[in-house]
């Protein structure tokens, strides 16, 4: 059971503001979905290695050579707020 407090805790971790109605609905929906998902708890998985990547690849290294990056104006052109050649955000110290 995912209660209101847990929903609010997870929403804080996810940097997501939810309306009261969304909190209510999310509590029921997450509880329902997890009820199905929790069936994997019944499997005997002792000693089974986890899979995070399906294709056998080892670290690929490339030559460490300088190359041009994106033009600053092109990247800043997509930003919602720009000042002094940078992204503008509210002060983290505020």
């Amino acid at each position: 059971m995912i209660d209101r407090e847990q929903v609010l805790h997870v929403a804080r971790l996810a940097r997501l503001e939810l309306s009261d109605a969304e909190v209510e609905r999310m509590s029921g929906e997450l509880t329902g979905i997890l009820g199905h998902i929790e069936k994997i708890g019944e499997l005997d998985l002792d000693g089974v290695c986890p899979t995070s990547h399906v294709v056998e690849v080892t670290n690929k290294l490339r030559a460490d050579e300088p190359r041009p990056s994106w033009p600053r104006e092109k990247i800043l052109g997509a930003a919602p707020a720009v000042r002094d050649d940078g992204f503008e955000v509210p002060s983290p110290q505020a």
Partner: peptide, 10 residues
């Protein structure tokens, strides 16, 4: 998308 972000974060 909100539902999946919540599920994944949980």
């Amino acid at each position: 998308v909100k539902r999946r972000i919540m599920l994944g974060t949980y």
